[in-house]
């Protein structure tokens, strides 16, 4: 059975910032229902590019829901520049860790955030380097290799 930290459980049972911001400045969607995981992230910024509101919707397991909730909490009050630096490890750490089988659930958060920021900046995500390996997330082999080295 998966071992979840108290913080994961707490975010899962009482998720923050559930929903969609209708007139959002940034929108990021990743995943698909066939994969079993999907996340939609929307945010609003003020004139200083500071995130003032952020909401999510997640189809996924407890750690996907908790990761999304944690991400929104982490994002509030950050500038876009600061937000950009958030990695899936940061999300997992914020939650007191995730079971290793469930790390990919937090990756979804990072990916959605990247997309939402790209959307905010008005440009589609630049053509990715490498070959797309996972269709659902548009994950490339280069990204997988990078993730592997980062996690050594």
């Amino acid at each position: 059975m998966w071992e979840y930290s108290d913080k994961v459980k707490e975010h899962f049972l009482n998720p923050r910032n559930v929903g969609v911001i209708e007139d959002a400045d940034g929108v990021g969607e990743v995943g698909s229902i066939s994969c079993g995981d999907a996340l939609k992230l929307t945010f609003k910024v003020d004139e200083n590019e500071r995130i003032v509101d952020v909401k999510f919707q997640t189809f996924g397991c407890a750690s996907a829901i908790a990761s999304s909730s944690a991400l929104t909490e982490m994002l509030k009050g950050k500038t876009i520049e600061e937000a950009e630096k958030i990695t899936n490890d940061d999300i997992a750490n914020y939650l007191g860790g995730l079971p290793k089988e469930k790390m990919h659930c937090s990756v979804m958060g990072q990916e959605a955030l990247e997309k939402a920021i790209a959307c905010y900046r008005g440009k589609p995500l630049s053509e990715k380097e490498g070959e797309i390996v996972c269709e659902c997330f548009g994950v490339t082999d280069v990204e997988i290799r990078r993730a592997l080295t980062e996690h050594r």
Binding site: W2, K9, F12, I33, D37, F59, C61, A62, A64
Partner: peptide, 14 residues
């Protein structure tokens, strides 16, 4: 439909 089993199980467990 439209939701995921593990989440249901954990909420029920509560």
């Amino acid at each position: 439909e439209f939701i995921e089993g593990e989440s249901i199980l954990l909420m029920m467990d509560e």
